[in-house]
Structure formats: C-alpha cells, structure tokens
Amino acid sequence: MACCQSYIPDYFAITDILSTEERISCKIEVELPGLGFLDSSSQSEDLTVGTKVELPLWLAEPLKSLQNSVVSVDVPKIYKEGYREILEADAEVIVLSKWNPFYYELGMHVRKLSDRDYEIISESLLQTFKSRFQLVMDWSQNATSDPTLSIQLPRLERDLFLSGQQAKIRLVEWLKMGTNELVVSEITTNLKKRKREQYEFD
C-alpha cells in the first residue's frame, strides 16, 4: 500500500526524495572559496560569510549538522509562528497542498534543523493532522466525491484518503452485490514456499 512506503524515509523512498528537494534559505557561516556561482546576484568568486543562498534541503541538512556548521538554516515560513497560528485557528479550511505538497514530510525534516522549535513544530504538525483527519475521513467515506478533492490534500493525507476511499468502494460493492468471487490474496501469490505439485514432478 502506498502509505507504507513512506513509513521508512530510506534512500529510495520517492516521497522522501521529492520532499527534500524543497529549497531552504540558508546563511553562509564560513567563507567558501570558489563557490560564488551559487549566489547569482554576487560578482565575486567566493561565497562570503553572511551571504544568503537557497539550498535544497538534502544539501542544507548535512552542511548544517557538520561539526562547525557551514551554514545556518532559516526555517521556512510555513512552519513559523504566523502560519502555525493560522493552522491553530482552523486547519480544516486550508488547502494545505498549496503551502507545500509534502507539508508533513518536510515539516518532519525541518524541525530537526532548529533545536529551539523542535517541540513546537512537532506539536503543530500533530495537531494539524488530528484536526484535519476528520475531513480526510469524511471525504473518503463519500466514495463518489469529486476527483479534485485529493489534489487539495498534501501527500501523506492523500495516501490515507485514497486507501480509505478504496476500502469504502469495496465495502459498498459488497453491500450491493452480496457474494462475489474470492480472489487469491496477495500474500499467497507472493509466497515462496515450495508447492506440492512442483515437488512431485521432480
């Protein structure tokens, strides 16, 4: 199931790759010779201390966590207090995927970058998820609802929504038709056990 893949942010998890593409504004803390091209507005060849550049998260994170950090990271505004307050007020009416299609995934990465806000961002993410869950559940229970709905949800909620919707469709089908044919479970088709007939023909 789609949800399960994103459980493990491993090297090949596509959700993880896409969410860490997001550009984060960083401040250079150490003079970097020869990297002036990263900042298109500057003419010099070197990156000087205090320059602001936008780096993708996958680059910013290791640079920050070096023993003497090369950059200091600015938390994206959607995780800052102003936006957190909007979510606190009413999370359900916001089209969260417009803020960022990987709102939760990115949030889970970003909170690691700032020691001060770790707890607050976690709490905010959790509360947002909780208050929006009813919305996701209600939408998925109405199996015929329009297809644009899922675009309004960030990735994590969309996966939940789609799996819930599928289960609902199957339930409705069962209620309508009663008995229909059983299909072989995925688990048994993937079973690597020796089958008796193979054994006998050998």
């Binding site: 949800c3 889970m108 976690s122 289960a167």
Partner: peptide
Amino acid sequence: PLLPHALDQMLRIQTG
C-alpha cells in the same frame, strides 16, 4: 486501513 494508517502516521510525526 484508514485508521491504523492514520495512527501510524501520527506516531511517525511524534517520534520523528
């Protein structure tokens, strides 16, 4: 699978 998945995700958000 809606509820168990949602609970799993909540745990993920909480524990990183």
